[in-house]
Amino acid sequence: MTAVSSTGSTLGALQRSRRSHLAWLSVVLSVLACACLLSVSLGTRDVGWADIFAGVTGSTETIAQAVVVVRVPRTVLAVLAGAALGLAGAVMQGVTRNPLADPGILGVNAGAAMAVVIGIAWFGMETLDAFLWTAILGAGLAACFVYAIGSLGRGGATPLKLALAGAATAIASSSFTIAIILPRNDIAGGVRSWQIGGIGGASFDAILPCLPFLVAGLILCLLSARGLNLLALGDDAAAGLGAHVAWARGGAALGAVLLCGATTAICGPIGFVGLVVPHVCRLLVGADHRWLLPFSALTGAILLIGADVIGRIIARPSEMDVGIVTAFIGAPVFIWIVRKRRVRDL
């Protein structure tokens, strides 16, 4: 009777947990839908519902409808970029078992940005396809370099050493990027604007080439959920439970690199989304990556859309780039995480 009662209690707890997760999923999807509507309707010129409907169907008879036509691809890019960065951050935190892991803090975004700037300044790179491949290559090399440096010494790749190696790599990459740009007045203005990180001027012609990379990264990351759950137990325990540790870590990292590289190529290096979002999602659905990863993608999309809308409103009639707004949001959260976790315990 005791075993039966215990089994029934466990099943009941799982069912309640599943219902709670589904309830939160419906809330997050509703918030995302509202954020998309706000993104289309708010800005330098506010747009009414009738003009939104007409603009979405392709009508440009009025200025308001033309504004909607411009904002729709911008909103789509915000959804894709936010989802990519949120998901990549959750995966990186799982791969490194580091609560401070983030594409920006680990130097992945900075590596992608440096590679693109080198391509522009030294090789005359101009096409988006070239930007994409170069950014992904730079992101991958930066990730490998950080992991190699963090693995040196006693204890291997500890969370603290990875965070320090990533911060040093990000600073060095950014400094080298600035050194390349300074003597090149012909490219300095455009590159500096791109380095801030933004989604203004988005178009479907620019978004479409990125989709294969984003879809591939999304699939790899979502498929890595079980492996990340096992890696959270430690490499030895994961191997004992049948996981191929190297493949699990490598596949997840490759997915995150694809997402970061593609996003950086089209938007520039946007920071802190991948840091903030996974921690928020853990409060909602716990640490199970089967739920955490999709929630991180959806919540990342909400955060980036919200940051874009805030940037349009507070700087009227101009705009504040989304990368600046996410930095204002993410920096206090970063400090809170460090104080809560205490760096010596990482």
Rank of each mutant, 00 (worst) to 15 (best):
D236L: 11
I199V: 13
F272W: 15
A225K: 08
A188C: 07
A172T: 11
A252S: 14
R192S: 06
L241F: 11
A163Y: 04
G153F: 11
R154S: 12
S193P: 00
A248Q: 12
G251Y: 09
G271R: 07
P183S: 00
S224Y: 02
G198W: 04
L223T: 04
A216T: 07
L258K: 07
G250V: 06
L211D: 11
G271I: 03
L258G: 09
D205Y: 00
L254Q: 06
A163M: 10
T177G: 04
I181K: 01
A168N: 09
A157K: 02
C221F: 04
T264W: 06
N229D: 14
L220S: 04
C210K: 02
P269R: 06
V245C: 10
A163L: 14
G166D: 04
S224W: 00
A237G: 06
A168G: 11
I187P: 01
I178L: 07
G240A: 12
R184W: 05
G274Y: 03
G261N: 07
D236V: 13
G200Y: 08
V191W: 01
D235I: 06
R226M: 08
G155D: 09
I270V: 15
R249S: 15
G255C: 09
G155R: 10
A246L: 15
I199A: 00
W247I: 14
N185G: 14
A243Q: 08
R154I: 05
G274D: 03
